[in-house]
Design a protein around this nucleic acid. Structure first.
Lengths: 158, 158
DNA sequence: TTTATTTCTTAACCTAGTTTAATGCCTACG
DNA sequence: CGTAGGCATTAAACTAGGTTAAGAAATAAA
């Protein structure tokens, strides 16, 4: 399997939405994330990937990528060519990712923004320290303003 | 790997939320679905599984299941013990399911209910024929009333 | 067929979260 | 040092969709 180690600087884009032959990225150090952008230019964080995580667009192989993959911090990344692909995904790391997707869909449907936020900071306290809040808001499916709002409402209640 | 073929009647529950050692189900004939229920008793469809689909709770193995798995029609189901598990998931079928989860998260965050609905009936016209609309609404993260509403608003616009 | 049960739709009201815009805060950079 | 760009917070106005309730329509059961 083709394998490559690259260094990317903060802000660099490893893969863009629309790209064909997407790849699988493993973060050796640093921090990546994936996201989409809608027609109005609004960004939606899809996944965070700190050290030791894998990140990829899991759209079907013939399809163009739905996601951008970008470095949130300077990072060292191992790039796997996707072809023999899913063999990677079955590994433990991918299980965590799958489970996260499941929980996330459920929460997007059934929990209000504040609950999703509280769950997130409890589950991923280290990520909270490393990305701006607006990215967390985006990951949770709320606007930064919306998150600020529900947070301050929650405070008042006490 | 332990393997079992069972017949289940419509409405039968193969696995309940909270169950340990969850299994993987392959639908030979009929139709299954998975869902959660919140504290108020409201149901949220997580996945549909017509013939030849696989369905499972992908929460981590030590964790209790988040999902119920239930027969929407009388069905024949192959049950796989989960242990050697992910080997199954990597198969093509699971890719489709993964891709669907990705698209769904993106759409839950970025598209209004009506767009999600239109995408669904276009992508899965056969499913639309087989399940009541309230289940589709639930899958899309809207209430049945909400779906009726946006549908009739869309009609008026023309 | 008649009855019972579930499903779909409509309507009035309500709320969580969006949008837009302004303000203050940092941090980076000249 | 000052200033420019990104980030967080707040507030006012708005809206998509939720909630509740009731009626119509379709399915299933008897």
């Amino acid at each position: 399997m083709a394998l490559k180690l690259v260094r990317v600087a903060k802000g660099e884009i490893l893969q863009a939405s629309g790209d064909l032959n997407t790849k699988v990225y493993e973060v050796r150090s640093g921090f990546l994330c994936s996201y989409t952008i809608d027609t109005k230019g609004k960004q939606y964080i899809f996944m965070f990937a700190p050290e030791n995580w894998m990140i990829a667009d899991v759209a079907l192989p013939e399809q163009p990528a739905q996601l951008f993959i970008e470095a949130v911090e300077d990072s060292e990344v191992i790039i796997y060519e996707k072809d023999p692909s899913i063999t990677l995904f079955e590994k433990q790391k991918m299980r965590v990712c799958l489970a996260e997707m499941q929980t996330r869909i459920i929460m997007l449907m059934s929990e209000p923004a504040i609950k999703r936020y509280e769950h997130f900071i409890q589950t991923y306290p280290e990520i909270v320290k490393r990305v701006p809040q607006r990215m967390i808001a985006s990951y949770l499916g709320v606007t930064p303003e919306g998150l600020s709002k529900v947070k301050s409402e929650r405070k008042k209640e006490r």
